Amino acid sequence: MLSALTVGDILSILLFLSVLGTLLIGYPIAITLAGTSLIFAFIGNQLGTFDYAILNGLPSRYLGTMTNDVLVAVPLFIFMGLILEKSGLAEALLTTMGQLFGPLRGGLAFSVIIVGALLAASTGVVGATVITMGLISLPAMLRAGYCPKMATGAIGASSTLAQVIPPSTVLIFVGDLLAGVNQTAQLRLGNFAPDPISVGDLFAGALIPGFILVGLF
């Protein structure tokens, strides 16, 4: 099977492993993605599997991304999550929910899951939610006598809801991608007036499953 791989296939695998390795070492994401890509572009050009002319299309791709009305929402959601963290609103919400569920067994864990779901819905970014909830709720849960495994599990589970509960940045990217794919597929089928797939449709479809996951957690 390895003999069937081309030079381009091998370079693609090495590129993926190099990006993963440099990220694990601790290099910044921007430098890692740009640096490793350019290095492997040079290697591919020397081996005859990559043409530098392809790089001429990067400016138009960058401009298209920056002028995309859908993707503009991503940094705004991240900014909103930072405001919630720095202003102390998320911590105040966790404290209030803790008082509400205080009489219940495991009430603080319930509070963490609910606040994590609300924060995930506000930011739409898993990483931001995990960091925020970890800084806010992990010390409180450990002081309350929770097992570290239980505490980190509750925080991690509630924070990953940002991928499902709208507004999710993952759904924004998927919606932008599906809109183009759906239009291309409908045109190939002869439908020259296809019904568009919007990000709002994905948000509506993910809302109920997101609430079900919150209830199951």
Rank of each mutant, 00 (worst) to 15 (best):
L2D: 13
S3W: 07
S3T: 09
G8S: 12
S12H: 08
L15P: 06
F16L: 12
L23V: 04
L24I: 07
G26D: 15
Y27S: 15
Y27E: 12
G35D: 06
G35R: 02
G35I: 09
T36D: 03
S37F: 13
F42Y: 12
G44Y: 07
G44D: 00
Q46G: 04
Q46K: 04
L47V: 08
D51V: 07
Y52W: 10
A53V: 01
I54S: 08
R61Y: 13
R61G: 11
T65M: 05
T67K: 10
V70I: 08
L71R: 10
P75K: 06
L76D: 03
G81A: 04
G81K: 04
L82F: 14
I83K: 06
L84I: 07
S87Y: 13
E91Q: 09
E91H: 14
E91I: 00
L93K: 05
T95E: 01
Q99Y: 14
G102W: 12
R105P: 04
G106E: 03
L108H: 11
V112T: 12
I114T: 08
V115G: 05
A117E: 10
T123A: 05
V126Q: 05
V130C: 11
S137Q: 12
S137F: 06
P139V: 08
L142P: 02
L142V: 00
R143N: 00
G145S: 02
A151W: 07
A151E: 03
T152R: 07
I155F: 14
I155D: 14
S158A: 15
P167K: 04
S168V: 04
F173A: 09
G175C: 02
L177G: 15
A185I: 08
Q186E: 14
F192K: 11
A193K: 02
I197C: 08
S198H: 02
V199Y: 12
L202N: 05
L202V: 11
F203V: 14
A206H: 10
L207P: 01
L207W: 05
I208L: 15
P209Q: 14
V214I: 03
